[in-house]
Amino acid sequence: MTLYKTGQVPGYEWTQRWTKGTSDPIQLWASSEIRTVYVSVRYSTEQLPLKVRRFVPQEGDKLERTWAYQGTKKSALIPPYALVDVEAGTSAYTTYIRESMKDIFSTMLGNEEDLLYKTYLLAYHMWQKEERTSEAFGLLNWTLRLWVAIRLSTTSAFIVGKETLDMPANILDESSPDHGKIPLPPVMGAQMDTILIHHIQNKLRHELLDNLQKVMLRNKPTSWLVTYLVSFILLHNIALITKHDASYAIKHGMNRRFAREQKVREYHMGANVILAHFHYCNKGRIPFSDECEDKDLRALAQLDEEKIRFVRATRALVQRHQQEWNQARSNGVYEDDYYFVSQLFDEKWQPSTTNV
C-alpha cells in the first residue's frame, strides 16, 4: 500500500546519487569547513539543526532551484552544500518529528470545531495517555509519527537564522512563490528526502500496517475506536499527498493535474483497501448512526465519557457536512480534506475509481 511519495518526480530529481534509496556518504568535499544551519517548515516554530559542508558537484547533481512563472521556467543558482552525516540527520529528524507534532497539528488542521481537529486531538491525547505497551499506543504512535514525517517530506523547508550559506535574502526573485526565503541546496534536500522516506517512513509504515492488519483481523469491539482513528488519519493523509502532487504540478508548469499520475492512482487504491477493511470490520456496528446509543458505546467499545462525547460530536458534524462532502466526491475533488474520510461514514460503501 502506497502512503507517500517514494522519491522525486522523474525528470525533476535533485541528484542521481541516491536513486535507489541508498544514502552513501559524499566522498569529495570542496571545503573542510562545517557549518550548522537551522531548517524550518511553515507549519511549526521548531527548528531542525543540521551540519552541512560544501561539496564538489558531480554529474546529475542539481545546482539550482526552479519554478514556473506565467508559462516561463525560472531558476536560481544555489551553492552546493550537503549534510555531513546522514545518521545524525536521521536522529535530528526523529527528534524533530516528536517536538513539532503538536505545532503542525495546530497549524494544519483548521478550526477547533472542525472534524479534522477534533479527531487528531483525540488521537494525540490517547497517544499521550495510553500505556506504552498497549495496542492503542503502538498504533497511534506509528500513525502520528508517520503522518508528520510525510508532511515534512511534502512541505517546502527553508533555512532560517543567521547562517544562510552565503545566500542573500532575495536569492529567489519576486516571481517565485517562495520569494524572501532561503531555499535548501538541492542535494541537501535530496538527502533529507532520503532520510524521511527510506530511514523513517518505510520503517513506520511497515510497523503500522503489520500491526493494524492484526488488530483488524482480531476485530475486537474494544479496538473499534483506535482502528477508526488510524483509518481516518491515513485516509486524510492520502488527500493531503494528492493535494501536494497537484500543487507540485502547478508549481513546475507540468500541464497535467498531478505530478505523479501513477502514484496518485496507487494512493487511491490504498484508500480503497483501508476503507474496505474498515467497513468489513464495522459490519453490523454503526457507532456514528442515530440508532447507536451511549449505552451501546460503553458496553461494546468500552468508551469513556470523553470518547462518547467525541462520537456524538462526530455524528453531528457528519450530518451537517454530508451534502458538501458528497458534492466533492461527485466532482472528483480528490484533494479535498474529506474526500476519503467521509467514506468512513457510508453505510453502503462502494470502492471508487480515480480519473487523472
Rank of each mutant, 00 (worst) to 15 (best):
R54L: 05
Y12F: 14
Q27A: 13
P79R: 07
T94H: 00
R42F: 08
Q8E: 14
Y38R: 13
Y93P: 01
L63C: 05
A76T: 14
R35H: 11
V9G: 00
T22D: 15
I26Y: 03
E13T: 12
A76F: 03
P49R: 12
I78G: 01
T95M: 03
G71A: 11
G11D: 03
G11V: 15
T66A: 03
E46G: 02
R53M: 07
V86D: 00
G60K: 06
S32I: 10
P80L: 06
G21I: 05
K73T: 15
Q58D: 10
W29D: 06
Y93T: 06
R42C: 05
I26E: 00
A30R: 12
Q70M: 10
D85A: 02
R53D: 10
I26K: 04
P80K: 02
R17M: 14
T90I: 13
R54A: 10
S91H: 08
G71S: 14
R42S: 15
T45Q: 09
Y81P: 03
K62E: 12
S23C: 10
I34Y: 00
S31P: 10
V84C: 07
Q58R: 10
V56I: 13
A76E: 08
Y43D: 06
G11S: 03
Q8A: 12
F55N: 07
T19G: 00
Y93V: 15
Q8P: 08
W67N: 06
S31C: 08
P57G: 04
Q58H: 08
T19P: 00
T15Q: 01
S75H: 15
K73I: 09
G60E: 09
E46A: 12
W18P: 02
T90Q: 14
Q27Y: 06
G71F: 02
Q70H: 11
V52N: 00
V86N: 00
P49Q: 05
L48G: 04
D85S: 12
I34D: 00
E46K: 13
T15W: 03
P80M: 08
V39Y: 01
Q58I: 14
V86Q: 00
D24A: 11
Y38Q: 15
A68M: 14
T90C: 11
A68N: 15
R35Y: 02
Y93L: 15
S40H: 05
K51C: 00
A88C: 11
R54C: 07
T6R: 00
G7H: 11
T95A: 11
L48Q: 04
T22A: 01
P80G: 04
L63R: 15
S75P: 03
T72G: 05
Y12I: 07
G7I: 14
S32P: 10
G7D: 08
L83C: 13
A76G: 02
F55A: 05
E13F: 04
D24F: 04
T36D: 04
T94I: 01
V52I: 14
A88G: 06
G11F: 04
S75F: 07
S40G: 03
T45G: 03
R35N: 13
A76I: 07
T95I: 05
V41R: 01
Y81T: 06
W14K: 12
T15G: 03
V41K: 00
Q16M: 11
W67V: 07
A88M: 12
W14H: 14
G21P: 04
G71Y: 09
K51E: 09
S23A: 10
S91Q: 11
T22I: 08
S31G: 08
G7L: 04
E64A: 08
V84P: 01
